[in-house]
């Protein structure tokens, strides 16, 4: 018996007014995602993958329709409630890593924890655990420019999971990586969903990457086709 889905999306639309033109990025998307799934979003450029991911992650708002995450309609949260919600429930992995260059890997990972009530010692422990999980235990004191792309992306994954969020979203996380590093990153994301029970939603263009997921969705012109 399946539990309540963690993500419930109904008739979601997103449109942008560009001059006189109404650009429709999402056109009535409905979708359920179960807890612990590793969902891969695919589709041509401009099909609305990132837009959908952003709305689920609470950094963008839909034009109409609803996005319930863990039973909360995030469209009803105000800016600062949404910020808190993201901090506690979502981990982000971006294509271009987006680590803060002046901070070490460990400090980057610690960043989301600064918003929590955890003590310095507790924070250190969680940072160490997260870095361990992505195989960077010995690289914590290195700055991003002292790490390879793959290592930077693994640090970014550590940052995404250090708050122990239910949801991890990744927008083309292997887009800037060589095949070997991409494989490492995908394996980590896969184990997060399989072994740690995280729900992972990943956008990718690469069918080989898609193979790591437990389910693939195709978007075309703002609609789910498969």
């Amino acid at each position: 018996m399946a539990a309540e889905p963690i993500v419930v999306i109904r008739e979601l639309t997103k449109s942008y007014l560009q001059g006189d033109l109404n650009v429709i990025a999402l056109n009535g998307v409905s979708l359920d995602i179960q807890s612990g799934e590793f969902v891969v979003l695919m589709g041509p450029s401009g099909s609305g993958k990132s837009t959908l991911l952003h709305i689920i992650a609470g950094i963008d708002r839909p034009t109409s329709g609803s996005a319930m995450i863990q039973g909360i309609n995030i469209a009803n949260l105000n800016e600062s409630q949404l910020a808190d919600w993201r901090n506690q429930n979502v981990g982000f992995v971006f294509q271009s890593f987006n680590l803060i260059p002046v901070l070490t890997a460990a400090e980057n990972v610690e960043l989301p924890l600064l918003l929590t009530d955890l003590s310095a010692a507790e924070r250190r422990k969680q940072v160490a655990t997260a870095l361990e999980l992505v195989g960077l235990a010995d690289r914590g004191h290195h700055r991003p420019d002292q790490l390879s792309g793959g290592q930077q992306q693994r640090a970014a994954i550590a940052r995404a999971l250090v708050t122990d969020p239910a949801l991890i979203v990744a927008d083309e996380p292997t887009g800037n990586l060589d095949a070997k590093s991409a494989g490492d990153v995908l394996a980590i994301l896969q184990s997060l969903s399989r072994d740690a029970g995280k729900t992972v939603i990943m956008v990718t263009h690469d069918p080989k990457s898609a193979a790591y997921g437990s389910r693939s969705l195709h978007l075309e012109k703002g609609e789910i086709t498969a």
């Binding site: 992650a57 989301p112 918003l115």
Partner: peptide, 16 residues
């Protein structure tokens, strides 16, 4: 800007 956007995504609020 990009870093500030990332910080926002991580849950940092405007006032921070």
């Amino acid at each position: 800007f990009r870093e500030l956007a990332v910080l926002k995504a991580l849950g940092f609020r405007r006032r921070e």
